[in-house]
Design a protein around this nucleic acid. Structure first.
Lengths: 136, 136
DNA sequence: AGAAATTTGTCCGTATGTATC
DNA sequence: AGATACATACGGACAAATTTC
């Protein structure tokens, strides 16, 4: 079995197709892409090639991949609109580092971290909760 | 022959070693790295693993590769400029609502929430972790 | 100029490890 | 605990770009 790749490489063609689906909402923002095994079947390509295509999308910041979970499509929302209807509430406190934060900050599990929590409300209902962590 | 990778993956170890050589001038800035075949012999790893290590360095902007030519080490000027920049990493995932979030959003405990996590790094170290939650 | 050698690029198949559901 | 999904690693084959002779 030869492996010709005249012109455009296969993994790039696949990446282009997946990008198209994400940008056109065929794959919803935040949704999981089909599993590698599924894509393997659909594109009739080896898993390595599929992974190469996904790696290309990852470099474009178009998707993120989580071990054992899957690959998520990004939301193309770069809207920095400031809505005046939105009320915010801010709260500051200290919390112990959970395993993930401890790992990210490279501190011991349970180390006190500085946390700022910002609520945004629309019509009274909480719309988003933002938590910002820093080492103290 | 099994292919265990307890702890640190092999390609990362190799990438670390090559990074060390570049940063310490063992490989001169602008110089060619050893060929993949040479590295394969030195590290006793498959070509794929060597290529993965080099790909990691490429993502760090520490080297560039040219087809048929080789991989060049970057100049320290370039590197230090990159290091002064603040890098961000974004991750999107779904997580179950903890008690506080459930209360704020007025949903059942454990309801799947949409989470976007943004890391900011300065010189490689995580400076802040921001987590933004929404109901989906 | 041309052929051969060198070096990176693409693709496949397989096996096993690790994280998540 | 089992199933599913991504991660790592090996090996082989052929393509394409560059350098060398």
């Amino acid at each position: 079995m030869p492996t010709p790749h005249y012109g455009q490489p296969r993994y790039r063609t696949i990446a282009d197709e997946l990008r198209h689906r994400i940008e056109n909402g065929i794959i919803q923002p935040g949704a999981l892409l089909p599993a590698e095994s599924t894509l393997t079947a659909e594109f009739q390509a080896s898993r390595g090639t599929i992974r190469q295509a996904i790696a290309a999308l990852r470099e474009e910041q178009l998707v993120t991949t989580e071990h054992g979970r899957g690959t998520y499509a990004h939301t193309p929302q770069h809207k920095s609109r400031i809505d005046k209807e939105i009320e915010t509430e801010t709260l500051q406190r200290q919390i112990p580092a959970d395993p993930e934060l401890a790992s990210l900050f490279e501190v011991e599990l349970g180390t006190a971290l500085f946390e700022e929590q910002i609520l945004t409300r629309r019509n009274g209902a909480v719309e988003t909760v933002t938590r910002l962590y820093r080492v103290r």
